[in-house]
């Protein structure tokens, strides 16, 4: 059992998570640029619910924001897990913390997706 716990999360070695964290980092740079450009600059800084919901009602913006949300959550969850791997070396505690991080990330993702999909234009 202890051996299984020690190996938990190590089968992939880390290369897959590492490359996806770089890819999502790149997606974040582009998505953040678009987010700031459209939300804070192109509309003169006038951020209202009506303006945001109007944009989010469009399928293209739903896709962009879902991509943004997915990239941000994957990137941050991997960042937290990397810190756990750096500092937590007791197998049971590590497994618990990594599991909690994934569950919290998943809940936030589902909540975010549901919100973006549900939004309709006023």
């Amino acid at each position: 059992m202890n051996q299984l716990l020690k190996q938990f999360g190590t089968q992939s070695g880390g290369s897959t998570a590492w490359i996806w964290q770089r890819i999502t980092g790149l997606v974040l740079v582009i998505a953040l640029f678009l987010h700031y450009l459209f939300l804070h600059f192109l509309n003169g800084g006038n951020v209202t619910y009506g303006e945001v919901s109007g944009r989010l009602a469009m399928p293209l913006w739903k896709t962009i924001d879902i991509t943004f949300l997915t990239a941000a959550l994957y990137h941050s969850v991997q960042g937290v897990i990397m810190n756990i791997h750096d500092y937590v070396h007791r197998a049971m505690l590590r497994v618990t913390l990594v599991s909690i991080t994934w569950v919290v990330g998943l809940i936030l993702w589902i909540t975010g997706i549901a919100t973006v999909i549900a939004i309709k234009s006023l």
């Binding site: 999360g9 190590t10 070695g13 290369s15």
Partner: peptide
Amino acid sequence: RIEALDNKHGLWRCH
């Protein structure tokens, strides 16, 4: 060598 490198205690611990 890849097992030692692509490992929780390997390459990916470098920040």
